[in-house]
Design a protein around this nucleic acid. Sequence first.
DNA 1: TTTCCTCCTTAGAATCCTTCTAAATTGTTG
DNA 2: CAACAATTTAGAAGGATTCTAAGGAGGAAA
Lengths: 144, 144
Amino acid sequence: MPKRRLDNDFALKAQDRLRAAGLRPTRQRVGLAQLLFNGPCRHLTAEDLFAEAAAAEISVSLATVYNTLHQFVEAGLLREVLAEPGRAYFDTDVSNHHHFFHADTGMLQDIPEDAVVIAALPAAPEGARIGRVEVVIRLEKAGA
Amino acid sequence: MPKRRLDNDFALKAQDRLRAAGLRPTRQRVGLAQLLFNGPCRHLTAEDLFAEAAAAEISVSLATVYNTLHQFVEAGLLREVLAEPGRAYFDTDVSNHHHFFHADTGMLQDIPEDAVVIAALPAAPEGARIGRVEVVIRLEKAGA
DNA sequence: TTTCCTCCTTAGAATCCTTCTAAATTGTTG
DNA sequence: CAACAATTTAGAAGGATTCTAAGGAGGAAA
């Protein structure tokens, strides 16, 4: 039984994950997948991930970070969240849930799925079907 | 009794509206307010409004359109809606309602308030209060 | 109405985030 | 290992929005 470092384990898992999604497990994609999916779920921007990669000495260009994030969204590995205009946030939690958005800090915070109960939805207009229902609760500072 | 053209009536209404919101009724703000608030509610971008102003021969710079839109949001005359990353939409309907977002066309469509019923919301985190609850229902093309 | 002061508008540059480009590299398959 | 297609890259390009510094306009008071 070959000895393995933890890093390699993670790398292998990431590889499988990518292959399962139909994405070639390149060095860059594996590295980014490790950063994204090892550890707890969180929200980040492309720049955030680019900085993390640099810190982790994973050599990758910003263009590839953008490409990879979109491919991961496409593949269902990530979700894109709308919070602020002019900046895209990505959520490593792809399960069905909603968000608080702290208007003062620009921070996103998860809301567990069952904390929001939607009792009625309209029918989709002709020719369309409902893809996803996204609830964002904007938060202001308390003493306003 | 002085004779008045319809335009002037609208202009007077817009002036009052601006004054009530604490905004000086400048030529540009009055013009934009007329474009925005005469006629049915709708969604538009800064560029849309800039083009409408040009078409209506209201001389105003793009910078002022942006400034004015934000001031109107601040004053509660408009709402900003999140739909696509990288582009801000403004909604002339400030009443409580939600939106369909057509993923293929980028179009926003209003949902009457009572078509979405939210039965439970989480409490706001410590130090914050809930500002607004925004529901966006993403629509895909039907045959997908 | 004239003055004065402040707020507002402006054109253009600047900035920010994101995508594109064309060339070099890498993964995969035979 | 060769060959091919997919991927990565740096830098340029793009689009939306904000900033800047200067001139212009509202309106309160004289």
